[in-house]
C-alpha cells in the first residue's frame, strides 16, 4: 500500500525540483552579491552610505522573510504601481535582500577581523588602497567568510520553500497540491518532501565542510 503511494508521490515532487534549484541558485548569487555590497557599505568612509546600509540591514533583519515576500509580490506592485515582475523575481528579490542583510555582517566582520598589521605591511609596500583590499585583505577575509557562507547557503535552500506561497511550483507546492486532493497521503508526502530537501542539502553540507577546511588552512596568524 505504502509502496504504491510513494511511487505516486515521487514523480510529482520531482517536477518541483528544478524550480527549487533555480530559486536557490539565483538567490544564493544575489545574496552573496548584496552581502558584499552592503558589507562594504557599512565600512564606507561616507556617513550617508554607512547609515543607509545600516538602515537597510536592520529593516530586513528585523522583519520576517515571509512578510517581505508578500510585500514584493502583492503590496509593492499595488502601492507603487511598479511591476516587480514574475513570481521568480519577487521570490529571489525577497530571499536575496533578506539573506544579503544577514551575510553583510559576516562580510563586514571578516574584513575588520583581518589583522591591522596586514594593511600596514601593504601600505609599507606602497600598494594603493584598492590593491590592499584586493591582494591582502579580501583573500584573507573571504577565507573567514566561507564557513558561514556555507551555513547560510543551506538556510537559503530551506527558505526557498516559501516561494510556494506566491504560487511558484517548487517541491513544496507540488506536495501541497497533491495533499489537497488526497489528505490520506499527507504523511508520505511530507516525509518525502523532507527527504528531497535533505538530499538537496547534502552537497551544500559537503561544500560547507570543504569551506571550513580551506578556511583553517588559509589564515594562520603571522
Amino acid at each position: 500500500m505504502i509502496d504504491i503511494s510513494i511511487l505516486d508521490v515521487f514523480p510529482v515532487l520531482l517536477k518541483g525540483v528544478s524550480v527549487t534549484i533555480q530559486v536557490l541558485v539565483l538567490s544564493a548569487i544575489f545574496s552573496y552579491l548584496i552581502a558584499f555590497i552592503a558589507g562594504f557599505g557599512r565600512l564606507s568612509k561616507n556617513v550617508l552610505v554607512r547609515k543607509f546600509t545600516g538602515f537597510y540591514i536592520e529593516i530586513f533583519r528585523g522583519t520576517s522573510l515571509i512578510v517581505q515576500l508578500f510585500w514584493f509580490y502583492y503590496a509593492i506592485p499595488m502601492l507603487f504601481n511598479v511591476q516587480v515582475g514574475s513570481e521568480l523575481m519577487a521570490g529571489v528579490l525577497a530571499i536575496s535582500l533578506n539573506y544579503g542583510a544577514y551575510m553583510s555582517e559576516i562580510v563586514r566582520g571578516s574584513i575588520i577581523a583581518v589583522d591591522k598589521g596586514q594593511r600596514e605591511a601593504a601600505t609599507a609596500l606602497n600598494m594603493t588602497r584598492f590593491q590592499q583590499m584586493r591582494l591582502v585583505i579580501l583573500p584573507q577575509a573571504v577565507r573567514m567568510m566561507l564557513p558561514e557562507f556555507g551555513n547560510y547557503l543551506i538556510q537559503i535552500l530551506k527558505a526557498t520553500s516559501l516561494v510556494s506561497l506566491i504560487g511558484m511550483t517548487d517541491i513544496l507546492y507540488h506536495g501541497n497540491m497533491l495533499r489537497s486532493t488526497n489528505i490520506a497521503m499527507a504523511p508520505t508526502i511530507y516525509l518525502l518532501i523532507l527527504v528531497f530537501y535533505f538530499i538537496l542539502a547534502l552537497p551544500l553540507i559537503f561544500l560547507t565542510r570543504k569551506a571550513e577546511d580551506i578556511s583553517k588552512k588559509g589564515v594562520a596568524s603571522s
Binding site: A124, P139, Q140
Partner: peptide, 15 residues
C-alpha cells in the same frame, strides 16, 4: 615608494 619598513611582528601575508 622610497621608504621601506620591517615590523616587530613581521606582518607577512599568510595566504
Amino acid at each position: 615608494g622610497d621608504i621601506g619598513m620591517v615590523f616587530q611582528h613581521f606582518n607577512l601575508f599568510p595566504h
